[in-house]
């Protein structure tokens, strides 16, 4: 209960910068920085290798055969692989957006309101996509879609992705909300802000780190999904994972590394740009 009364939602917005600097030192633990460094090495060494092999001239994604840009040339001329990559991106973006909005609304209700009837059952339903094994979801969803005659092409995939993205977006947002008090919101309302304004200018910014975390988890879950997509996809909605797993009879080539590298480069450029823009402010 202590946290309820003392916890201020965000140190940065409330405290002055210098004050929070001072508190940093107290919050520091030896070895955490080193763990983080090792963590990022662990994360990026395989990715580094993956990028290197996109420049392999041989057929293999792991046996080096000399430098060559031939797979780049091939990928840039391969309409199928580009279409698959674009499909993946579109599906992941839309599904992530919808899932994150729904998850945010749901977690606001579940974490904020007092106990109400149906709270536990709602919570269980939200967790359902996480618990059911993927292949079961895939077969069940496919049977259901064909039973109701759902024929939306790529839309079918987006619906299926939205469903299993919800718990991944929901969990971090709910974790963020837990123990966060509503005093600030109350204060804003006392100052005659309407509910929407209180949400927009108080709750939402406080919730942002949770929403970002949730959205990013939903995104990576969606962009890498294979089994469910395989089952529910219709003609013309092949995604990158489907393309890759279909290569069994011929073997995976560095072309896949090329596509992945291009996606990585684009996202890293995007992140660095937003970092630089953010710093100027």
């Amino acid at each position: 209960m202590t946290n309820q009364t003392i916890a201020a939602p965000s140190s940065k917005s409330v405290n002055s910068r210098s004050a929070s600097r001072k508190f940093f030192k107290i919050g520091r633990f030896p070895g955490f920085g080193l763990t983080t460094l090792l963590f990022f090495l662990f994360l990026y060494i395989p990715i580094f290798i993956l990028v290197i092999f996109s420049f392999n001239s041989g057929r293999s994604a792991t046996i080096w055969d000399g430098f060559g840009l031939n797979w780049y040339a091939k990928a840039f001329n391969n309409d199928d692989i580009q279409r698959a990559a674009i499909n993946s991106a579109i599906i992941a973006l839309i599904a992530t957006t919808i899932a994150t909005i729904l998850a945010t609304l749901a977690s606001l209700v579940l974490a904020r309101s007092r106990k109400f009837k149906g709270q536990n059952i709602s919570y269980s339903i939200l967790m359902m996509p996480l618990i059911v094994p993927e292949i079961v979801t895939a077969v069940a969803t496919l049977s259901f879609f064909s039973f109701v005659g759902l024929n939306l092409g790529i839309g079918n995939v987006i619906i299926a992705h939205t469903v299993f993205c919800i718990p991944f977006a929901f969990m971090p947002i709910r974790a963020r909300l837990q123990g966060m008090d509503s005093t600030l919101e109350q204060a804003a309302m006392d100052l005659y802000a309407n509910e929407w304004k209180a949400f927009r200018y108080v709750t939402f910014p406080l919730l942002m780190p949770g929403i970002i975390s949730g959205a990013m988890l939903a995104f990576i879950i969606s962009i890498d999904d294979f089994i469910i997509t395989l089952m529910v996809s219709q003609a013309g909605s092949t995604t990158l994972p489907l393309y890759i797993y279909g290569m069994v009879r011929m073997g995976i080539t560095p072309e896949i590394n090329v596509v992945s590298s291009v996606m990585l480069f684009m996202s890293i450029i995007f992140v660095s740009l937003s970092y630089l823009i953010g710093r100027k402010k």
Partner: peptide, 25 residues
Amino acid sequence: NMLIFLVTIPFWTNLLIRTFSWILI
């Protein structure tokens, strides 16, 4: 914000080829 993005970027690539990298290592 940048670091948290960097945590997820590797996972924009496909699981199968990420695992291939581990085989190589």
